[in-house]
Each structure stands twice: as structure tokens, then as C-alpha cells.
Design a protein around this nucleic acid. Structure first.
Lengths: 250, 250
DNA sequence: CGCATCCGTCTCATTGATCGGGATGCCCGT
DNA sequence: ACGGGCATCCCGATCAATGAGACGGATGCG
């Protein structure tokens, strides 16, 4: 049921076409789409045309194709991503205003951390994370939180799989990761120093919904050797504010 | 080429399925989707299944269907909606912090104003506008700005069509609307008093990109009889900040 | 200037995926 | 016990989707 080995159906094709768009390649010609999606030229043209008729894609002034705002509208209108983001935004603004570094909200999606929102102040530095971007669970503070409070099943799967190393300090050893997850659960937060970029440290706390399930991770990115105490304090304040908005009575 | 009167193709069906989701109905059963989209039960089931396999929809714990985060991710990653929103967010936060009322960013989409973002402070009142929501061009201050600086073609089309009346004060007369648009162009901003709700007044200014084209409207919603001078001042400050981020040299 | 690419558009015969009616079984409320 | 609503599975007919190919225009290179 999960997957059909055929990998071919009109729906699959449409998705493959949509997936050829990336944050770096936001506009492309129909032929490029065909090549990247492995579709014959003429088929790609036809499918792109249909998607344009449907309003999911748009044709640029100069024939190039881009994702239509209608698709963004459809997706944003009714995903719980929006609800979470809305509930969290005021608290995130407050955290950002006090800490003045990147403030992020991430959820679990297909065994990775998906970032719903990121606020960056004028003083904040680089930006590996982007909105609607992803990071591996074992390599980011947000991911560690989501993993530590995730299902046993998820944890086993991650511990059994490959743990790619982004920097020399990424936790790439299953035993070390298992120990780290236990630590996260004990402390109630995750600190990831240099696991993505050597120059920065991520700090993340779990956010729960009214059923007590961890639904997101709230995090900030600090310079590598900055003290984490103040950030943790703000993060927990923010977490409580978000949870209150979500209807958690404490 | 533009439209096929048939209105039937796999793509059309998929879109119709996606469109059955609304801000109020974010989860539904497959049968409901079938009914709302006018598709036979079994067809609806099959299509929903394919969309779930593709990751665009998700199945709830209890068999119900909802929009998948993957769709939000795809759409958000690479639409210019994101780029605009990103460029505008810091400025919007500043405006919101000073005025303490709803602060909104809207773009033109299919002859309506589509709201990309809305920030609401603790003191702000009701919320007719929602993110990814729409309002008619002639009835909102944002819409009036987008229309006044839109193409001649768009203006003719709107003036020729029906102008539904949301309140007693909505501009529903073509001649009055034409005069209002000229006024907006002269002043460089739009004030819409009571055109959506009698108790509130919208104030909006145009935002231009590096080519000088108006790409968005920045607006706030004030209590009906509040003075607009301070808000206008902040809006123009915010507008300049956004335009600078977009690369407009002034 | 001529050649080589790359693009978009169009046609058309073939085929295999899509379609939808219907049967089955489950769950839930009455 | 019963009826309604739902998800799931099946299957033959059909027809829209498919993709190879040809054509013309735009662009770039030597």
C-alpha cells in the first residue's frame, strides 16, 4: 500500500514536476522541467500547460514557469502548519526581540525537521535554515528535540539508518546519539554545538499541544560559545506562551 | 488555448479535490471530498489515495483527510509570495509595534486581493482578514491600492463587472469607484472607511519593486474614527524599508 | 554569414491507465 | 437487530493521456 514500485501515475508525474522547483531554482523553462523530472519534452509541455490552466503554475513574462500563488494559497489556507505558525508567531517575536538571534519553529515531517518559520534580527548572522527548509533530525537542536520526544519507532529507524555528518562535531554514532536523546529528555531541552556549522550553537525546547504530544520545537541559533542560560529562559517562556495559545492548561 | 470548456482532465480533478479544503473545513472524509468535488465515490477514493501516496495529502489518525505539510512546503519553498513576505516581515513588525493594530500585506491575484501576511497585536480587534485569504479589490483599502496602480485592462474589467456591496458604505458605483481610484493615485495611498466592516477603517500604501511596478499593498486596520495621519506615516516608513530590501534605490 | 542548439508548438496513431458502477465488510448510532 | 455511512476492492470498456517526431523561430558561436 505504502508505495507502488511503478512510480508512475498522473499524480506522480504532477508531483515530480512540482518537485523540480527548489529554493534556488524558482523559475525554469518547460524543457528544463522535463529534463529534471525525467519526462519526455512534449509530455512535460502538456503537463505544465495543464497545471497552468489549473492555476498551480504561472507563466513568466518571458515564457518561464514558476510556482503560482494559487498553490501557496491552497496549501496555506488549510494546513495545520498555518495554525501552529499563527499560534507561535507572537511568542517567537518576543523571543527574537530579547535574544536578537535567529528564532525558529520546526516540526517533524518525513523523518526530518521541517522549519515552519524563522525570524531573523538585524544582528543575526548566517542563515543555513530557511522557511520551508529541512534539516536532518540528528544534526540540529530542533531535530534532536523532535526525535527525543518522537515515537519509539522513529527513534529505532533513525538509529538504525545512516547518520550523515555535516561537520566534525555532528553526532554520527548511534550510541552517542542514543545517549544524547536520553540527555535531552532529562534536561527538557537540546543544545547542539557545532553540529551544523562549527561557528554556531542551536538551542531548542519542545512545544506540546493540548494532548501532551510534542508537536514542534522552538529554537534559537547562538554564536558558538555564547552562554545558553538566558536563551533557554526565553525559550521556555515562549514555549509556555505558545502552549497556552494552543489550549494547554498548565 | 486559455481555457477548455470541458473542465475535465486529471489535473482539473486534482485541483478540484484540493479546493474542497477550506479554512473552515481542514479535515474531511474521502466521501465528503467526493461529494464536494462532484466526483463519484470510488474515483474520489482513488484520487485521494494517489495524492496521499504522493504526500500532498495526509491521512488523519481516524481516517480523515487533511492537506499535507509537504504541499505547504512545496508551495512555500519557491513562490515569490515567500520572497515578498520575507522582505516585508521586519518592516511589518515595526509598523505593528508602533500602531498596534492589524498590519497586512496583500498582492493582486486573479482580480482579488490575496493577503500574504497579517500581524495582529494583543489590542487589535476582529479579524475579517486571514492569511491566504481574499477580499474584493473595490472593497478593501489594499484592494483599492492594487487596483489603482494595476493595469488599465484590470481597471476596465473591474469597472465593467459587478461590484458587490459588503456594507452600506462599500463603493459599489462604477463612477464613484473611478473617482476613488484617481484620488488614490493622487494621494499615493488609500483610505477605506467602513467598506468591509462599518466599525473599521483600512489604510493602505503601494509597495514597488526595483522596476517601479506596484507589487503589493501594505495596510493597517484602524478603528473607524481613528486619525490616519500617524498610521500613514508609519506605513510609508515601512514601505520604504521594504522597497529598500527589494533593491529599490531611492 | 552559416551552423549548431535549444526552445516552444503541433500532429497523430497507439495504448494502457483511468474510470465508475457495483459488491463487500466495517463501524456507529438508534 | 437494523439501517446508514464509510472505506475498500474488483474489473471490463473506454478514451484521454502518451510520446515520437517534424517544424519554425530565437539565440549563440566560430
Amino acid at each position: 500500500m505504502a508505495n507502488s514500485p511503478t512510480g508512475d501515475s498522473v499524480t506522480d508525474r504532477l508531483v515530480r514536476v512540482l518537485e523540480t522547483f527548489t529554493p534556488s531554482r524558482t523559475v525554469q523553462t518547460a524543457a528544463e522541467i522535463g529534463r529534471r523530472s525525467g519526462l519526455p519534452r512534449s509530455s512535460a509541455h502538456r503537463i505544465v500547460g495543464e497545471l497552468i490552466d489549473a492555476g498551480l503554475l504561472e507563466r513568466d513574462d518571458d515564457r518561464r514557469i514558476r510556482i503560482g500563488m494559487r498553490l501557496w494559497e491552497l496549501a496555506t489556507r488549510s494546513s495545520q502548519a498555518l495554525r501552529l505558525r499563527q499560534a507561535a508567531l507572537p511568542a517567537m517575536e518576543r523571543v527574537q526581540a530579547r535574544i536578537r538571534e535567529h528564532t525558529q519553529l520546526a516540526v517533524l515531517e518525513q523523518d526530518e525537521a521541517l522549519f515552519l518559520e524563522r525570524l531573523s534580527g538585524p544582528t543575526s548572522g548566517s542563515n543555513v535554515t530557511r522557511i520551508a527548509g529541512r534539516l536532518p533530525l540528528h544534526a540540529s537542536s530542533s531535530g534532536l528535540v523532535l526525535l527525543a520526544y518522537g515515537t519509539r519507532d522513529l527513534q529505532e529507524r533513525m538509529l538504525a539508518g545512516r547518520l550523515p555528518r555535516l561537520t566534525a562535531e555532528t553526532i554520527a554514532d548511534p550510541t552517542a546519539l542514543r545517549r544524547k536523546l536520553a540527555e535531552v529528555r532529562t534536561l527538557g531541552h537540546a543544545v547542539a554545538q557545532g553540529s551544523i556549522e562549527l561557528v554556531s550553537t542551536g538551542v531548542a525546547v519542545p512545544v506540546r499541544d493540548e494532548t501532551g504530544t510534542v508537536v514542534a520545537a522552538l529554537s534559537v541559533v547562538l554564536p558558538r560559545d555564547a552562554p545558553t542560560a538566558a536563551a533557554l529562559d526565553e525559550l521556555h517562556r515562549g514555549r509556555r506562551e505558545i502552549e497556552r495559545t494552543l489550549g494547554v492548561r498548565s
